[in-house]
Amino acid sequence: MIDDDDSLDEALGALGTHDVDDWRREHVRLRAQAVLRGEPLGFYTRFVEPTLTAVVCVLHLAWAIARVAMLLVS
């Protein structure tokens, strides 16, 4: 058990820092830099990525509903 504030501060000081992976670090930096320059988001970010995400979600939902329906029917 830690009895005093100094020991507690020492223990909390033992916590290091964590960081994101290199790809994420660069991805965020480039995206923020584009925003800083006032550039509009690219075609991929505006249309392709959300469309793909929506398609995957709809397919997943349809699969889940079909599975539940099959279980109820059988």
Binding site: T17, H18, D19, V20, V28, R29, A32
Partner: peptide, 15 residues
């Protein structure tokens, strides 16, 4: 300037 701020605080904010 953005890069400097990003390098200085990214890991701290993430942690």
């Amino acid at each position: 300037a953005f890069d400097a701020v990003y390098e200085a605080y990214r890991a701290r904010v993430f942690s």
